[in-house]
Design a protein around this nucleic acid. Sequence first.
DNA 1: GATTGACCTCAAGTTAACTTGAGCTTTTAC
DNA 2: GTAAAAGCTCAAGTTAACTTGAGGTCAATC
Lengths: 152, 152
Amino acid sequence: MTGKGGGLRRELTVGEVAERSGVAVSTLHFYESKGLISSWRTDGNQRRYGRDVLRRVAIIKVAQSVGIGLAEIRDALATLPNGRTPNAKDWARLSARWREDLDLRIKQLTKLRDRLEGCIGCGCLSVDDCPLRNPGDKAAEKGSGAQYLKPA
Amino acid sequence: MTGKGGGLRRELTVGEVAERSGVAVSTLHFYESKGLISSWRTDGNQRRYGRDVLRRVAIIKVAQSVGIGLAEIRDALATLPNGRTPNAKDWARLSARWREDLDLRIKQLTKLRDRLEGCIGCGCLSVDDCPLRNPGDKAAEKGSGAQYLKPA
DNA sequence: GATTGACCTCAAGTTAACTTGAGCTTTTAC
DNA sequence: GTAAAAGCTCAAGTTAACTTGAGGTCAATC
């Protein structure tokens, strides 16, 4: 192998990871500081990553796009075998964990869409009938903060 | 009418709006500073709100829960007739505007859920087959940032 | 062997969406 | 008529998720 630019290497520099994963170098530093990814150092104190970091970053991005926060992602990734390449069962566990969130969110959004249709959409002004309008008004008597949807 | 605590009044103080809408007083100040709601002042410089503010706040909350930012909400609310109580057509326009967003987001999340099943879930490691894994790795040759989903 | 590009660290800045606090005025209640 | 509750303004703080910048090191290249 002629050093760099050749075939597959198992080690990646931070720049390479950045390019291949599509996130900025500073973001990788940041993720590392938050414990979402890890690396080892060369003699010259530069970071080196294993190939699985690409997978991790991809998963971070996917999870984020679903609305999952970095802290939760970190906790989930932390359940993966430390230092070793995760197997199918490991990934399945992750997937299951988030799938529930995802299903729930989809359900909520769908419900919301229907309410949007029926409430904002119809322009109904009845205080007692409109589920969108009601919670805020009922609070006047009940004296508790309105609950709109309260994301689980 | 014995002043406060009686039947329906059309004017609401900031505290009343806060209680009935379930948001903090400071939040109402904040929304006003951002142009999402408006009020007039008494001689003593205190805010007074029309009843429709409850509706507005409810809508703000609903829109937020869908992931719409305050700036976009402000713009949408700004299309409502200024100062006058909006009619059914006005609300319908709002609803239509956000319904698209909502449909899109639901679609994306659903797609994502399926991918999650098929990719993270199966634990597949094939660089070429896995849509979750691939974009990041392909970038090595293509030299462009990876596109995961690129929310429209 | 020196220049240039990739890295490193650490602090500070950024945006969104609010909250908290200080210091002061107005209303409401006894 | 006075004291407590509710308001007001304005500045600064908070969290998430990063980015930017300063100042200095490492490494690949001509």
